[in-house]
Design a protein around this nucleic acid. Structure first.
Length: 330
DNA sequence: GGTCCGCTGCTTGTCAGTGC
DNA sequence: GCACTGACAAGCAGCGGACC
């Protein structure tokens, strides 16, 4: 790789003169400038980012951690944050942190070693004790933004999606359509799912319904598990007339199961997912869903991170309301 | 074996020098 | 005095060699 010294040697000038040309600074004779520009072009010169970072005391690098890079709504969120920060001249490192708390801690340590200037943690799973320890130990000097989580630390901001209220409004919609036995199918135990369940339980109590027998948990996040669990639910509780799912992915399996069992949707059974993903769009009939505004929350997260890195503005909490997107299953 | 020092990598900003 | 150019220090982390 050509360095500024190689170009300078060939141009017959000092490295600092080449540096002036590279950075478009004044104080270089036009003829010298043209000669250096021709060499830069000839050798496809590109400044060494690490070396530039030494002088500027800035790497323009950010870390984006996701629990599992196979989860579509998290990777979409990472994509939006990465795109927003790229527009501002930052380069992103995207890493899968793993499900275990200690692995998350290790990922935080690894990303810190890359000398990032800010970190985004995507998903409510990044709100545990080990993550907090990791932030305090390794990231205390830089801004951190949590997407769909929050932590009371001086350098941490969070964009929290109000899924608890969102689920309550789903319940209000279903109840308003005359549904009396509404079940809830959830996936893994996460802070986000706990908030959703809280909203579900509160509305059940309000409607005089015992929620616990109607809460079903799938073993893993998959369409097949959603289908299997919905079949079981409809067999054990045939009187069920509404089902709310913690994510669209398992709701898609639920739609399949209900259609296969001959349920008329939504007349006999109303179904709703959460997260407004492509799965809901692809269902037949199309799934009504709770739009948790992934794009908006990711844009806000990117902006909070940028403000933290460039203006030192830290520790903000933004609460984002959800909205219902009605399609054909309600 | 432990500690200290100097060097390497590359770029940038500043100050000093040169020539007209 | 001004335009232009060169020399050099600084920034950080890691490595190797010298020394105790």
């Amino acid at each position: 790789m050509m360095t500024i010294y190689d170009i300078a040697r060939e141009a017959g000038v000092a490295a600092s003169t080449v540096s002036r040309v590279v950075n478009g600074k004044p104080g270089v004779k036009e003829e010298t400038r043209r000669r250096i520009l021709a060499l830069l072009e000839k050798y496809h010169y590109s400044p060494d980012v690490a070396a530039r970072g030494l002088v500027k005391q800035s790497t323009r690098m950010v870390g984006i951690l996701i629990e599992d890079i196979r989860v579509s709504h998290h990777i979409e969120s990472a994509f939006v944050i990465e795109q927003e920060l790229t527009k501002r001249g930052y380069c992103s490192i995207i890493m899968g942190a793993g499900a275990e708390e200690e692995k998350k801690l290790e990922s935080i340590r690894l990303v810190e070693q890359r000398r990032v200037e800010g970190v985004a943690l995507i998903g409510s799973m990044f709100s545990g004790e080990a993550v907090q320890r990791g932030i305090e130990s390794y990231l205390s000097g830089i801004p951190v933004v949590l997407v769909n989580a929050y932590m009371e630390l001086p350098n941490v901001s969070g964009v929290v999606i109000d899924e608890e209220k969102g689920v309550e409004s789903c319940m209000e919609l279903l109840h308003g359509r005359g549904r009396k036995r509404i079940a809830f199918v959830t996936d893994q135990e996460t802070p986000s799912n706990r908030r959703k369940l809280e909203g579900y339980r509160r509305k059940c109590r309000e409607y005089g319904l015992n929620p616990e027998p109607l809460i079903y948990r799938v073993g893993e996040r998959s369409v097949e598990e959603g289908r299997r669990m919905t079949e079981r639910l409809l067999t054990e509780h045939p009187e069920t007339d509404g089902i709310l799912y913690s994510i669209d992915l398992i709701a898609a399996g639920g739609v399949r199961a209900a259609v296969d069992k001959g349920y008329k949707l939504p007349e006999k059974l109303a179904l709703m997912g959460i997260d407004n993903s492509i799965y809901g769009e692809m269902c037949n009939p199309k799934l009504s869903t709770l739009d948790n505004r992934r794009y908006d929350s990711s844009v806000i997260a990117a902006e909070l991170l940028r403000l933290g890195m460039e203006e030192g503005i830290r520790s903000q909490r933004r609460l984002l309301p959800c909205r219902i997107l009605e399609r054909e299953t309600t």
